[in-house]
Simulated scan of single mutants.
Amino acid sequence: MQSVQVSEYMNRHPVVFHENMAIEEAVELLLKTEQRGGPVVDDKKKVIGFLSEQDCLATMLRDTYHKEQTATVGDCMFRGDVLTVKLDAAVMDLAQNMSAHKPKIYPVTDYQHKLVGIVSRTDILRALDMHLRDSYDQKTKKTKSR
């Protein structure tokens, strides 16, 4: 399991956002794809932030209260150090990291720091489940062959 890489389970075609995108457009994309959030990238596909459903909810609630609709992704995205993972990272390592940290979605980058996909807790859970099922099936086959 240690040799299983994030690249085997990541979403290679995630919803991504740009700073100047209207928040309404971003929300529409999130709703259509049922993705919980996504990376904000610059023109070179480098991750510069992250936009979550929570960010969108807070912004839209504020805008509704003030009867305004002028926010952009750049106005409400997280701009700090976004936790990313390399595409060749071990699934087990990321699973341990996910159990200790809050992010539900990690942007996946290559070694030039360009976005190549995302990986979610659900993706990692799927990888662990498949591994456990394979191990159980192999154990059952060995027991039956004796």
Rank of each mutant, 00 (worst) to 15 (best):
N97D: 12
D55I: 02
R79L: 08
T72G: 08
L57Y: 09
R133I: 08
Q35E: 14
V91T: 12
L83F: 13
K67G: 01
D81H: 10
Q2L: 15
A90R: 15
F17I: 09
R146T: 04
T64H: 11
T143H: 06
F50T: 03
T64V: 14
S145C: 03
R126L: 06
K67V: 08
K45Y: 12
D42E: 05
S135N: 10
D134P: 01
K102F: 04
K142E: 02
Q138Y: 06
V15Q: 10
A95Y: 07
L132K: 05
V16H: 10
H131A: 01
R36N: 07
G49D: 03
Q35Y: 05
E53N: 12
A89R: 10
I124F: 02
R62Q: 12
V16T: 13
D88E: 15
H101M: 10
M21G: 06
Q138C: 13
V116L: 06
T70H: 11
Q54C: 04
D55A: 05
A89G: 02
N11C: 12
L51H: 04
S7A: 08
D137F: 08
V6M: 05
K45Q: 11
K144H: 05
V108W: 07
A71I: 11
K32F: 08
G38L: 09
T72I: 03
P39L: 10
K67I: 09
K114Q: 15
V16S: 07
S7E: 09
I105A: 08
S52H: 13
S7K: 15
I124W: 06
K102G: 00
K86I: 06
H66R: 15
V6Y: 09
Q5R: 15
V108Y: 09
V15W: 12
E34H: 14
T72D: 01
Y106P: 00
G49Y: 02
D129A: 10
Q5C: 03
Q35P: 00
R79P: 00
T122N: 12
K46C: 10
V4M: 09
I124K: 13
E19I: 00
R62E: 13
L128K: 07
E53H: 03
L51E: 02
Q35R: 06
E8A: 13
V40P: 01
K139W: 15
V85F: 13
M21L: 12
P103I: 12
G37F: 06
R12G: 00
V47N: 07
A90V: 04
K86L: 04
